[in-house]
């Protein structure tokens, strides 16, 4: 399964979701598919986008609004302990997707540590996550969509191909503080919350 095709299937169902993406391939591919500037593309802190999303999910003004984390397996493996934290909460509105290609794609597909058959869903279950699934094809993705879109916490591993060459789609043409303000202003408009004060900070 190609990550681009996988995201093309997923993206039309994201209109209700608040989306947080880890840096690297997940962010770049999501941007390529959606051109969404309502997504928070974390440009650093590799491994902590899922923690950031947990903070969003736990404090959403409407706790039924879905929060999606688009994580990478390289990122997740830098912060495996966060699965224990996430498992301790498992908010109903949080959907954690792990784009698993077993390699560092943006640097040329160099393999990650571990075995090709490392079972990320089993790792999540071992951490205490109740509901974890693995999707290996677009057909499985289509079949899983109702479960993905239903209320309730879900940890979903998306097994995608590792390409033999660097794959670096054009990244978002904004970064840093602009990323903060685009996402924060979107949250204010959509949910009526006050992220920034009267003086704009």
């Amino acid at each position: 399964m190609k990550v681009r095709e996988c995201f093309e299937l997923l993206a039309p169902h994201a209109s209700e979701a608040v989306v947080i993406s880890a840096l690297g391939m997940a962010a770049n591919e999501w941007w390529a598919v959606t051109r969404s500037d309502e997504t928070f593309y974390m440009h650093g802190a590799m491994g902590f986008a899922s923690s950031f999303a947990l903070g969003v999910a736990l404090t959403m003004p409407n706790p039924r609004t879905p929060v999606w984390t688009l994580n990478g397996d390289g990122s997740m493996c830098m912060n495996l302990g966060s699965l224990l934290t996430e498992a301790s909460r498992q908010p109903d509105n949080l959907k954690h997707f792990v784009v698993a290609n077993r390699c560092y794609q943006t640097v040329g597909g160099l393999p990650m540590a571990g075995r090709a058959d490392t079972d990320y869903a089993a790792i999540a279950r071992g951490a205490g996550v109740r509901d974890a699934i693995t999707i290996r094809s677009l057909d499985e993705m289509r079949q899983a969509l109702p479960r993905i879109l239903a209320p309730g916490y879900l940890f979903t591993v998306l097994e995608v191909d590792c390409e033999a060459v660097p794959v670096i789609p054009p990244p978002q043409p904004f970064e840093g503080a602009e990323m903060k303000y685009r996402f924060g202003r979107h949250m204010e408009r959509r949910f009526g919350v006050t992220v920034f004060g009267s003086q704009g900070y």
């Binding site: 947080i20 902590f48 947990l54 969003v56 949910f191």
Partner: peptide, 26 residues
Amino acid sequence: ITHVRVARESEAIAIASGAFFTGARS
């Protein structure tokens, strides 16, 4: 207060940072 116990301190940084964007104080 919603209290979250973390397994590594940087998680606390990221969780608090995410909460900032819902208008929550963390």
